[in-house]
Design a protein around this nucleic acid. Structure first.
Lengths: 248, 248
DNA sequence: CGCAGAATTGATACATCTCAAGCTGGGTGG
DNA sequence: CCACCCAGCTTGAGATGTATCAATTCTGCG
């Protein structure tokens, strides 16, 4: 928690880019007004730590823009990323006072924060918030379980392909409906962060990226820009059912 | 879903062994009465499948007695267990019509089921149910994330020790508060099921069990009965922080 | 008794890790 | 403007942990 945090504000929730997807998605205007009154924004620079596991955490928050990660670290330094927080994702747990994970900004990050106590009170009185939070938590649980399959059973190549597919699909859905069109996107993660997410070493990530490039599954433009000619081809490499899971 | 299902019933919720921990834990007596009116029990024999991933699922349920597993399977047969359902745990997702995972009874199993539609309606009108379900889902999310660390970063020996520690601790907490006393318990899983849970092969599980026995960390009585002389010693083998996580 | 499922153990293969050396590109100070 | 520097990345060679394939051994049960 550094002095670099900026207190900036979207003037009101109506203009908020995550209004329709975040924990406030279902709120009526009167509920939104209450949320509005207890919210504040915080900004972090890429690489900054938002909070350390075990630290007192007296707020909950939504990611507005940027990307953050949730990681767990073992005593000897082994690290495993357990969540990737994208815009509209929620951080923190009502009813818990300590952070359970390290939260780090991997890009510049803006979060919409609510002090925990008022937020909890609001949850009791406005069922729409609790409803939406339940829905989001169930989605995260599904995502975590899909990741368990990846971590426990997929090969290094499948792991990389799966990660790229997730990012590519998300990018593609914003642009075109067609499946076979080119997709081009920036990797928001370093090789090491990818390794921490996938349960690999950064060398293995690098080798598999090179292999996928050599095999024509992806193209690289610089280190971070990825071009996927055929999403279908990439999906074949993930090891997942070809019909595509019904969970995103 | 076989004809073996038995329709039996605990006469009323007050006598229910999971009353205080399940999704109904917070309910007042009037709320309980409503739940009571839509509940029905189903029994499964050890080994039976409760539901297959992708099947239509028109109920949600609590495990009353016995143990069930949630598993995901890849096209080529690789399997990963993504959840272990113990008494009071909840199965199914309000708002979803298809099962996302295979659910299997690993021991004889009794579940308390609610048809999905009435349950969803009830959730809207009785906030205590939704509250409790949110709490339980957040706990499961934490458990899933702890498992991600295990799957991604722990060695085979640490994985086995972690699984045994979880079961041992749960057993121990029922009996004694002291940490160093003997713990003796039945493994509710076959070696293959352990392997599916831990992201290993059954041979590796067997070898590591033998190694832990050879090193005096555990003793075996038959194949399934485990004796842990020193829980602390077992915990050392898990790779986790020695102070013990604050999540159970 | 003998069979079948479960578990153990052995030998070998292989994927990934580890350690180590270079490469690359963008930023900085001389 | 160049040379250097450094984080991020790539590539190589060898070590190692786990998977794979295969042969026994247990254990409970009809």
């Amino acid at each position: 928690m550094s002095v670099h945090d900026l207190k900036i504000g979207h003037p009101n929730c109506g203009d908020c880019p995550i209004r329709h997807r975040a924990v406030c998605a279902r709120c009526e205007s009167d509920e939104l007004a209450k949320l509005d009154s207890i919210k504040y924004y915080r900004s972090f620079q890429a690489g900054q730590t938002v909070i350390w596991s075990g630290d007192r955490m007296d707020f909950v928050a939504s990611v507005v823009t940027g990307i953050a990660t949730l990681t767990q670290t073992m005593e000897d330094g082994r690290r495993q990323m357990v969540g990737l927080l994208l815009p509209s994702d929620f951080v923190g747990r009502p009813g818990r006072s300590q952070a359970a994970y390290d939260v780090t900004a991997t890009t510049d990050l803006v979060m919409c924060c609510f002090r925990k106590k008022p937020f909890e009170d609001l949850m009791g009185s406005t069922p729409h918030i609790a409803q939406r939070l339940l829905e989001m938590t169930l989605d995260e649980l599904d995502a975590a379980r899909e990741w368990m399959l990846l971590l426990g059973r997929k090969t290094a190549r499948e792991k990389i392909a799966s990660l790229l597919a997730i990012i590519a699909r998300r990018t593609a859905s914003l642009k075109t409906a067609g499946k076979t069109s080119d997709v081009k996107f920036d990797l928001p993660l370093t090789r090491e962060e990818m390794a921490d997410y996938l349960g690999l070493t950064l060398e293995t990530v690098s080798r598999q990226m090179s292999a996928l490039k050599r095999d024509g599954v992806i193209e690289l433009e610089g280190k971070r820009q990825i071009i996927v000619q055929s999403l279908d081809r990439l999906l074949e490499e993930t090891g997942d059912d070809s019909d595509g899971g019904f969970l995103v």
